[in-house]
Amino acid sequence: MSQAGAVKAKADATASVFARSRPRYGELVIRASLVIAALITVLTTVGIVFALASETISFLGEVPLHDFLFGTTWSPLFEPPSYGVIPLVTGTLLTTAIGMIVGIPLGVGSAIYLSEYATSRTRKFFKPILETLAGVPTVVFGYFALTVVTPWLRKIGIEVDAFNALSGGLVIGILIVPTIASISEDALSAVPQGLREASFGLGAGRFQTSLRVVVPAAFSGIIASIVLGASRAIGETMVVLLAAGQRPNLTLDVREPVETMATFIAATGKGDIPTGSLDYKTIFAVGALLFVMTFILNIISTWVVNRYREEYE
């Protein structure tokens, strides 16, 4: 063998230590499928926004934006029709507000109990139960509101209508407890034990430690859980459809029936309105408004989290 050949062979041998023996097809396939999975999620969202926007623009071509946003009568199927969305918005906000009043204290309270007070045995018992509650279909909650909560409200002396905002709102509150409790509990448990020890070491009691150290440190997670709960409450359909009725009612009286935006969409969508008609487009216009409301909620929560978060690392 010539000297040049020997040198070349040696160089090849050195290169082969790090050289890729063959293309890694498996890795390429995995990578491609992950990209596709991510793209499908993004494209679906874009598609929803696009569908909402195009029908909404077409709707606003026939109904002025001002009449839609600020009108106080919602009667799209009557003659002459009226497209003021305010009653649907107040109906939604009313049931959501009741839901949050119930859901935040119960959810955050059970999270604090589970994370700060419960023994590990109690925690192992309660958490699965809480998560099972999250798995109960909302239609079951709806009938629970209609057939249990409403009669119960009457029994304790609250003169509610057969369909009423209070019953729907209360049950929405119970419905979002698992969401709030589960995410808040994760955030509280993630707070380093050292912070609790520091607080106890300074003579703080368990309640002071929870409220002044652990909750502030987990604040961003708790806010995230509340926003998620609120989004669920705003978009909740079956419970309010069954318990709160379908009357677009501009009222703050929780004993009366109300119609929410989601209820309107569901009830009208299952009716026999022709595609492309103005009634059909109202569904999209209300849907778009619902989307904008949840979107604003998310922006506000991001701001709140960044403003008040206490980073512990």
């Binding site: 380093p192 020890e197 520091a198 070491g201 300074l202 440190a217 206490e310």
Partner: peptide, 24 residues
């Protein structure tokens, strides 16, 4: 009182860290 192995200041301002005990 107790001081721990790993420094464990609260994720609060320097002032609030010191003021925590007296406040509690």
């Amino acid at each position: 009182g107790m001081v721990f192995q790993k420094p464990n200041p609260f994720p609060k301002s320097i002032y609030d860290n010191i003021a925590f005990g007296p406040r509690v």
